[in-house]
Write a protein that binds this DNA or RNA. Structure first.
Lengths: 210, 210
DNA sequence: GTCCGCTCGGACACCTCGTCCGGACGTTCT
DNA sequence: AGAACGTCCGGACGAGGTGTCCGAGCGGAC
């Protein structure tokens, strides 16, 4: 008697979809590194680069945006997880701790910088993809907002700043600078970005007024 | 004997091109206000909204990006001009003066918010348009960078911050928050944006360390 | 050996883009 | 008045990419 629910860990269909997602996005990254524009990155060229037929692509994905949605979903948790270190910056915030926390976010983001930038670009034209990027942004804003409010109640963040608005500004700044500056950036530039990011966040949120 | 250079103020051809640009971009703004996506804003629908035939469109413009380039070029000077007030914030910077200067930038930007956001989106796919947006960004970064250096030499800006990197971060923050938050924002939200923008810039650049 | 699932290439209709052309209209010059 | 000119329009066209569909081939499982 065979297993009633044969290997319910994952549908072979879904597994194959996942495998192809990895392969195709890796191919996309190669092409983007070679200077191919996202607009010129059609399904044809993409599948060709990955060594998969175009018809097979449409077996597993609705369209190019569907592929990017799947990839993005798997990465967004990674990013969100990396931001948790920031919220842990507790009472009596230390500048070194803040830099380490922000540096960890930058490091994680950098791993996917080129594809993240491409995803945010593609989100302009695909409503579903746009919803996913919005989730990442709003979760970041929300986490930072609560962090700010906690700090204000505890007295180590200026009570005069507007938590929601300030969190929004800092989040958009991070998103934009990451996507604009990180793809293909040399280590030196990454360090500089982290430093300035820290400088601004520190100056806006934690610096003692005295 | 007729005029050798008949009314050399402006070619009638170029004038007509300018008129159509205004009409078409106004039509584009209407459609975007009605919730039409930039991706769905084809030449067909655009010209139909403006009451111009599609064939006439191609007489005066290479493609949709060409239209947007012409419009953007005419508006970028306006924006750059508005930022000059910021650089004028002189020795012994006053918080009220900073808010007024940044508020002026927000006010000007707001006039074109929806179309500016659309232009930055379209710049993703059109290299020439991208170059134009990059000019706006890099001019802003450059102006701010020089402003920072001037302040550092005069002693009213922290010499410890990196002028280029910091200017880049603040500029991208402004671009992103403007394009994301200003389109269709009620006056209350605009005020809040200006306040937070001022709060951050003040805290990062001018606040006395004491 | 036969069935089943997967992959592939190719063909197809569809859409948008950018080009091109002939006809219609109004103005200007003779 | 009539001719010449510029402008606009609708329509037709090919090119290129998208998403769908089908039949052929191939390997593993029964």
């Amino acid at each position: 008697m065979p297993v009633p629910l044969p290997a319910r860990t994952e549908s072979p269909r879904a597994r194959r979809r996942g495998e192809l997602c990895v392969r195709l996005m890796a191919a996309a990254e190669e092409l983007l590194d070679d200077g191919v524009t996202l607009a010129d990155l059609g399904v044809d060229r993409l599948t060709q680069q990955a060594g998969v037929s175009r018809s097979s692509f449409y077996v597993y994905f609705e369209d190019r945006a569907d592929l990017m949605r799947l990839w993005f979903s798997s990465v967004v948790d990674e990013i969100v997880e990396a931001t948790r270190g920031w919220w842990a910056v507790g009472p009596a915030p230390d500048r070194g701790a803040v830099r380490d926390a922000l540096g960890a976010i930058v490091t994680v983001y950098r791993l996917h910088a080129r594809l993240m930038a491409a995803t945010f670009d593609a989100a302009t034209h695909d409503a579903d993809l746009r919803r996913l990027t919005d989730v990442l942004i709003s979760e970041s804003v929300d986490g930072l907002r609560r962090h700010i409010i906690r700090g204000q109640k505890a007295g180590w963040v200026d009570p005069g700043l507007h938590p929601e608005s300030c969190a929004t500004h800092l989040t958009w700044m991070a998103e934009r600078t990451f996507n604009q500056l990180l793809p293909g950036a040399p280590p030196r530039a990454v360090t500089q970005l982290t430093e300035t990011y820290t400088y601004i966040v520190w100056g806006v949120l934690y610096r003692r007024v005295d």
